[in-house]
C-alpha cells in the first residue's frame, strides 16, 4: 500500500514572491541595524570608560569608509523603521478620545512626525550647533 503523501506547499522564499512581503521583510531587517548600531554605541561608551586614547581611537575608526557606509545604511534603516513605526502606532495603541471625540489615526501619525522633527532638530542643534 502506497504511503499517502499529502501536498505541502513549499515555504522557502515565501516572502520574495510578493512585493508586500518583500517590504515587510525589509521592515523587519531594520532591526539588524538598530541592534548593530546600539552595540556600536555601547562599544563607544566602553572606550570612553577605558580612557581618552581608547575613545579617540574609536572616533578615528569611525572614519573608515566601511563604517561610513554602515552608518549610511543604518540611517536609511532607522528612517524606514521610524516611518513604518509611526504609521502602525494608531493600530497598536488604545483608541484615544479628546472629550467625546475620537482622535483620528491620521492626526496621531502626523503628531508623531511633528515630535520626531522636534527631537531630531534638538539633537542635531545641540550637538552640531553648540
Amino acid at each position: 500500500m502506497a504511503v499517502r503523501r499529502p501536498y505541502v506547499r513549499p515555504m522557502a522564499g515565501w516572502w520574495r514572491r510578493n512585493p508586500f512581503y518583500i517590504f515587510y521583510m525589509l521592515r523587519e531587517a531594520t532591526s539588524v541595524f538598530v541592534a548593530l548600531y546600539a552595540l556600536q554605541l555601547l562599544y563607544g561608551l566602553y572606550t570612553l570608560a577605558v580612557g581618552e586614547a581608547a575613545f579617540d581611537a574609536w572616533l578615528v575608526s569611525l572614519r573608515h569608509p566601511l563604517f561610513l557606509v554602515f552608518h549610511g545604511v543604518a540611517l536609511a534603516a532607522a528612517l524606514l523603521h521610524a516611518f513604518t513605526w509611526f504609521n502602525v502606532a494608531p493600530k497598536a495603541m488604545p483608541v484615544l478620545y479628546l472629550g467625546s471625540h475620537r482622535v483620528a489615526d491620521r492626526t496621531l501619525v502626523w503628531a508623531q512626525y511633528l515630535i520626531f522633527a522636534v527631537i531630531s532638530v534638538a539633537i542635531l542643534g545641540v550637538v552640531l550647533g553648540g
Binding site: L41, L62, F70, H71, L75, A82, F116, V127
Partner: peptide, 18 residues
C-alpha cells in the same frame, strides 16, 4: 529607536567622523 536613532546616527556615524 524611531524618535532618536536617525538623528543620533547622523551625529555619531556621519557628522563626527566627517
Amino acid at each position: 529607536a524611531a524618535f532618536v536613532l536617525p538623528a543620533l546616527i547622523v551625529v555619531t556615524g556621519l557628522a563626527a567622523p566627517l
